[in-house]
């Protein structure tokens, strides 16, 4: 009993002190998370960048720890820049694709589905997040293979001409869906789609019903309501989701090894410079591309209100 009262009064005193000193309270609250993020994460980023000022000994493959800008000189070659462009284009395509696919389902769930159906949707959207990403990617490999599931159905339905047309399209086609950019696009979109649906769903959920009623009362047509009320309120959600889809596509190194024609992506290039070639300095310098691309992207997304809707 005694200890309880003293500890309670001590708690009182502490909380009173904290109340009187908001700065102290702020420091206490923020101290630990910031220590973690700045210390661990920021420190690691700096450690990473520092590696890029080392170089690799050509023959033995060991890292020469004397400071040099040599590695940065190796970074801006045609082939590396084309890797960055290829990856960024894929990330943009995947982001747009996911947004287009995510919107109807989120909209339907929020506007028309009853609470029970909405819960079912929610569970159905969450389940893929829990079933191993790797196993699902490999199952896509089988779905998209030349003698795989999709071709099997297409063949049964006599739709081969459609598929052949898609595969012969320059730039996105290839000998098989699983070895084409089109196939990569499908798999990327599939894998990251839930990360788009969830924030869009959350953003639409926050659109008060009264807005829509007011809009209708004022004589707006459904399309008009959509354009002037729903869409602007959904944008932060889409922007938030797009940070996930864009960043996840940008850094993934597993999908491009399994699906596609072996053309390197940024993640794959970094991974292979580090893990395969043992060239940590060049891998570190290469992270410059995703960091800059993401920096630009975050700047744009922030203006669209993404951080408020994450």
């Amino acid at each position: 009993m005694v200890t309880e009262t003293t500890s309670a009064s001590r708690l009182d005193r502490i909380s009173g002190a904290l109340h009187r000193h908001p700065r102290l309270r702020l420091a206490l609250l923020l101290g630990l998370p910031l220590l973690w993020l700045v210390g661990v994460y920021g420190g690691s980023l700096i450690a990473l960048l520092s590696q890029s000022f080392f170089s690799l000994d050509d023959f033995s493959g060991t890292i020469d720890r004397s400071l040099t800008l040599e590695t940065w000189g190796d970074l801006f070659t045609d082939s590396n820049i084309s890797i960055a462009i290829r990856t960024a284009s894929m990330a943009v395509a995947v982001t747009i694709g996911s947004a287009i696919i995510a919107f109807p389902i989120a909209y339907y769930a929020v506007r028309y589905a009853g609470p029970r159906l909405r819960a079912v949707f929610f569970v159905l959207i969450l389940i893929p997040l829990w079933s191993s990403y790797l196993v699902r990617v490999y199952s896509w490999k089988l779905i998209l293979a030349r003698e795989g599931i999709l071709f099997w159905f297409v063949d049964k339905l006599n739709l081969n001409f459609l598929l052949e047309a898609a595969l012969s399209a320059p730039g996105i086609g290839g000998p098989s869906l699983s070895a084409s950019a089109l196939g990569q696009f499908i798999v990327f979109t599939y894998i990251w789609l839930p990360y788009m649906i969830l924030p869009v769903h959350a953003a639409l959920e926050r659109v008060p019903k009264s807005y829509l009623e007011a809009s209708a009362d004022l004589g707006a047509k459904p399309l008009q309501t959509f354009r002037t009320v729903i869409w602007p309120l959904a944008i932060p959600g889409i922007a938030a989701g797009s940070i996930f889809t864009f960043s996840l596509t940008l850094g993934d190194y597993i999908i491009p090894t399994i699906i596609g024609d072996s053309s390197p992506f940024v993640g794959l290039a970094i991974y292979s410079y580090q893990g395969v070639a043992g060239n940590l300095p060049l891998a570190a310098a290469f992270t410059f591309f995703p960091i800059v691309i993401m920096g630009i992207y975050l700047y744009v997304a922030r203006r669209a209100g993404a951080f408020e809707a994450l």
Binding site: L30, L34, V38, L48, L248, G251, Y271, L280, M294, F307
Partner: peptide, 28 residues
Amino acid sequence: AVSLFIVLPIALPGIVTGIALRSAISIG
């Protein structure tokens, strides 16, 4: 800046986070 910094680990691709931690681990 704080809110941006907190979001940074998910905004930057995982490979950057991974390789950054790896460098810290190897340097330390």
